[in-house]
Simulated scan of single mutants.
Amino acid sequence: MGKRIDVQDLHVYYGSFLAVEGVSMTIEPRSVTAFIGPSGCGKSTFLKTLNRMHEVTPGGRVEGKVLLDDEDLYGANVDPVAVRRTVGMVFQRPNPFPTMSIADNVTAGLRLNGVKDKKVLAEKAEKSLRGANLWDEVKDRLNKPGAGLSGGQQQRLCIARAIAVEPQVLLMDEPCSALDPISTGKVEDLIEELKDDYTVVIVTHNMQQAARVSDKTAFFNLKETGKPGHLIEMDDTQKIFNNPSERATEDYISGRFG
């Protein structure tokens, strides 16, 4: 598992508004790529184009290409729902289904895809919860509501739900912003493990987090409020944080703006 993503001159629109302009990048398989930059610069918007989630918003569309191992995700015959199975997403705030048990939360996507065998579902629930480093904490209460878990546990539950359908890529939109430091550490440790099997892309406002967990970092910015966001530079995380090529990147990382 884990696929390469090639983005070619991507423009992201909502109606006539150009939200993100002219992004080209390569995201390597089985690695962690972090998107950083000030609020409103298009990081999360661009992230959502990688599995066509932005199209859920009325008027959301793109120009350009997003290739997943050479397959254009925006090709004429490509089903957006199939794209979202291949490219999973974990959101900023944990969003377990409140009326479902822990086990049912994990297997919701599988059941939606027609899997009915209880043994298969139980095995997949355990495998996914182990993969999210949550099994030992919840194995004795799988039938309890997922919403009864702590915030950090809920976020790992959502990660388990995302990996249960065996995606190739896992997108995370500020997955730790609502979590305490201990829970954040557990999710960061999990991200490090997930890259063994998945291509992971994370949006974060936490610069230290980007430096800790990512192999590559992309810095986004915008010229002024109301203008489209764009990619300033992307490189190995160590280089971005220690010796960036662009002055704007250095200014942001050092706290001189943003």
Rank of each mutant, 00 (worst) to 15 (best):
V12Y: 00
G229K: 00
V66W: 00
G59E: 01
G2Q: 01
L190H: 05
V213T: 12
L134P: 00
Q8I: 12
P98V: 07
L67T: 00
P96Y: 08
C158V: 09
P80N: 10
A211N: 08
A210M: 01
M234P: 02
N105L: 10
E71G: 04
A103E: 15
F91C: 09
I253E: 05
R130Y: 09
E63R: 13
I27A: 04
V138P: 04
N206Q: 15
A178E: 11
E224P: 03
V120S: 15
F35Y: 15
E63G: 07
D189G: 13
L194V: 10
V12R: 02
E123L: 13
E246Y: 12
G40F: 10
G109R: 01
V200N: 06
K216W: 05
T99M: 15
D235P: 06
M207D: 02
P80E: 09
E188F: 10
F91A: 07
D215A: 08
I5T: 10
G59D: 02
M1V: 06
S245Y: 04
M25R: 01
M100N: 11
E246G: 04
R61I: 09
E224V: 08
R161G: 12
P244N: 01
R130N: 10
A19Q: 07
I159H: 14
V81H: 10
N133P: 04
R52Y: 05
A76V: 12
S214C: 13
V90P: 01
D173N: 09
K239C: 03
M207I: 15
A34E: 02
D235W: 07
E55V: 10
L134I: 03
Y74W: 03
A164S: 15
R212K: 15
N95I: 09
A162Y: 10
P175C: 11
Y198K: 07
D196L: 15
R161L: 09
T107F: 05
L18S: 05
T237E: 00
G88M: 03
G229V: 01
M89V: 12
N105Q: 13
P58Q: 14
A19F: 02
L134C: 01
F97D: 05
M53Y: 09
A218Q: 03
F220Q: 05
T107A: 13
D180V: 06
K216R: 14
E126D: 14
F46W: 02
R52T: 04
R85G: 12
T86R: 15
Y252S: 00
L47Q: 02
I202L: 09
L112T: 10
R141M: 13
M207E: 05
G148D: 13
K116Q: 13
N143C: 07
R93K: 13
G131R: 06
M89Y: 11
I240R: 00
V81W: 04
